[in-house]
Design a protein around this nucleic acid. Structure first.
Lengths: 184, 184
DNA sequence: CGTATATTTCAGTAATTACTGAAATTACAG
DNA sequence: CTGTAATTTCAGTAATTACTGAAATATACG
């Protein structure tokens, strides 16, 4: 489990990125090593690949499992735990977005809704009330959109993304026909 | 600048969220106070609202300016700096995504492209090479899509989001007509 | 200029987060 | 059961990040 120069750079970069994504450097690096490995790896493989303590790897793997970003599996006649990442990149993105949504967006939506139900909400300024309400609506719209998109299968999702601009042209056309102005 | 109970909760929540988004608690809280305020506020308003040091507010505001999330402006006969947040929520989301893209996605794309150009790239496993290449392609597709979407004005963007599922139906229809299978 | 007010910088410290090694626990083969 | 290998837990420590107060710098006005 010695890493090539390419591997090294990839791993270091994802370590830095992992730190920005609510994990930490080691977690990001563990993920990067698993991501580039064709075969599932065990904890000691990661210890030698990254040069961190066994316990650190253990905690990192636990966190990656909590994020559902790695899969635990076993091999015949071996009682060690082996880990791998999904092969479908879109599945990975979906998991990442799901998790961040669950950790950041959903709690925010909960708080915003609670605020609006509380007695003293009315005693806030009109301005603040409206901002809170509009923010709630926007987040609801975005999450609804995402909930629709997340069930689209990978091939089709790629098509939809490529359609991006084309979809807007449908609206342009509809506006023209119905006589509604193009710009708000 | 004393905050109501609703304000308090909102501010505390965005402090916690700010910490997850590469800022820190104080930065998130400063932003939350500005976001709910109808009028621009000066640094000392934020000091009293949040009970943190003047220098902390100064640093927080500087970071928010680096993120382009707040706007500095002046008032007549007052040489203090006043700050406010944009009124259009979609503009705020756009700024947030732009910034995170610039800080996370773009550098990642740069690294991935560099890796593929380097001499020893070929000496990585076929598997790793392909993963790196596919990852690059996916990120490119996503950023292209976003680049198209980010210039759509707010009203229209809402329409497009609501279209989400409808857009897929266009593909369903096309597949049916052209005889291509629905699932990949 | 000089003075008053506003803002920034920065060294020191506080608080938080990450990591390690040793001990405890779990899982299983004999 | 007993012994061995694998994993987890956790208290202590290292490293990082956030915050403060004091000093320095900048800005505007007479």
């Amino acid at each position: 489990m010695k890493l090539s120069a390419t591997h090294q750079k990839f791993v270091i970069h994802f370590g830095e990125m992992g730190a920005r994504w609510g994990m930490n450097r080691t977690v990001g690096q563990i993920y990067a090593v698993l991501f580039l490995s064709e075969n599932p790896l065990c904890a000691d493989d990661l210890v030698t690949a990254l040069g961190v303590s066994r316990s650190n790897v253990s905690m990192g793997l636990k966190e990656l499992q909590a994020w559902q970003l790695v899969r635990l599996q076993h091999q015949a006649n071996d009682r060690r735990d082996f880990f791998s990442t999904p092969g479908d990149l879109w599945e990975i993105v979906r998991t990442l977005v799901d998790q961040r949504k669950a950790r950041e967006i959903d709690p925010t939506l909960t708080i915003l809704r609670e605020l609006q139900l509380e007695d003293d909400f009315e005693s806030s300024s009109e301005f603040a009330q409206e901002r809170i309400q509009k923010t709630t609506e926007m987040i609801e719209l975005l999450t609804q959109w995402y909930d629709e998109m997340r069930v689209v299968d990978s091939k089709r999702l790629e098509k939809l993304l490529k359609m991006g601009a084309a979809a807007q042209k449908v609206l342009d056309f509809k506006d023209k026909v119905t006589g509604k102005g193009g710009n708000s």
